[in-house]
Amino acid sequence: MVKREGGESLAVTVYGQVRSAILDRGEFTPGQRLKPADLTSQYGVSLSVIREALGLLAAKGLVRIERNRGFRVTPLSCETLNDLTEARVINECAALRLSVQHGDVAWESQVLAAHHRLASEPLFLPGDPPTRNARWAAAHIEFHHALIAACDNAVLLDICEHLADSAELYRAWSAAGTREVQRDVAGEHRGLLDAALTRDANLAAERLAAHITRTRQILLEFGFPHVDAEPAASAAR
């Protein structure tokens, strides 16, 4: 049963729980249909709360609303992954260059603190199989946001935030693939930190582009998940 916590609405609470089920635990896989009636029983809330939570997830790109077909976890596709990767490289690298140029001591402290929080969390929690650490995922988003926070362009920051939301499902499945390819994610983040703090905008942008592109490479090597019961659900749109 979902309970109200402080001033937080039930829909926001359910949003967080379903988000974690998709990204951290893999309970709902890309392309899988989400039936509101089933979710009302699972989370112990009304149908209107479930629909509001699914709308919040859709706004973050994690759920797709299909006319006359209901809701499903957003499918993964090579086409969308390539488009997202290209858009992120263009926009996030531009934002990082500006941030390195304009950032002050307060920005440096923010980046250092964000990296410290990220480095203190393991990527996976122990288990069989291990699960993605939600605290690491939140710290990861915070670190990347801190890197570009000083770009002094609100429109560019909004674009980057939207792209990051859209890419979160891909990052989650890419993280699962790191167990196969032994990716040095921590080393990549240290490289980004060093380049940013030494004010080498070109090197920082180069490392960020490689970091973003590596996620695409891993997913293509690792393979996209699919729903056996509904094989067409994960087809490229």
Rank of each mutant, 00 (worst) to 15 (best):
R97I: 02
L219N: 11
Q110E: 13
H115L: 10
S234P: 00
R72T: 01
A106Q: 14
L54R: 00
P122R: 04
A176D: 11
V227S: 03
L197V: 07
L10T: 04
V49C: 06
I90V: 13
Q32K: 06
L123D: 03
G177S: 04
L197F: 10
A236R: 02
A204I: 06
A229C: 03
A176W: 12
T213Q: 15
A21S: 07
L62C: 08
I22F: 14
C151T: 01
R190M: 08
D104S: 09
T213V: 10
S77Q: 00
G127F: 05
V100Q: 07
C93S: 09
K60D: 15
L34P: 05
F124H: 01
A167R: 05
T213S: 15
E168I: 10
L57K: 03
I148G: 01
T215V: 05
F124L: 03
E108T: 05
S9F: 13
R97P: 02
E66F: 06
A201C: 09
R97M: 09
A167N: 12
A201T: 07
E188K: 08
T131R: 08
H145I: 01
G31A: 06
D104L: 10
E142W: 04
E52M: 01
V105W: 15
T215G: 10
K3L: 13
R72I: 04
V63H: 14
E230H: 05
C160G: 10
L96C: 12
P129R: 01
H211G: 12
V185M: 07
E230G: 00
E161T: 11
L203Y: 10
D128F: 07
W107F: 14
G223K: 00
L123A: 03
R67K: 09
D128L: 02
T198H: 09
S46K: 01
L62H: 08
Q17P: 01
F143E: 03
D158V: 04
F222Q: 02
T215A: 10
G223Y: 01
E230Q: 08
C160V: 04
F71R: 00
R25E: 15
I212Y: 15
L39F: 14
G191S: 09
A149C: 05
L169D: 10
D152G: 00
A164H: 15
A119Y: 14
S41L: 10
D128R: 02
N82W: 04
T85Q: 12
Y170N: 06
D158A: 12
V111M: 13
G44W: 11
P75C: 04
P130M: 01
A235H: 11
A209E: 13
I50L: 07
D184R: 06
A146R: 02
A175Q: 05
E180T: 00
A204K: 11
L147S: 01
I141G: 08
I65V: 11
G223F: 02
A87R: 15
A167P: 02
E188Y: 14
G16Y: 12
G61H: 12
F71C: 01
D184T: 04
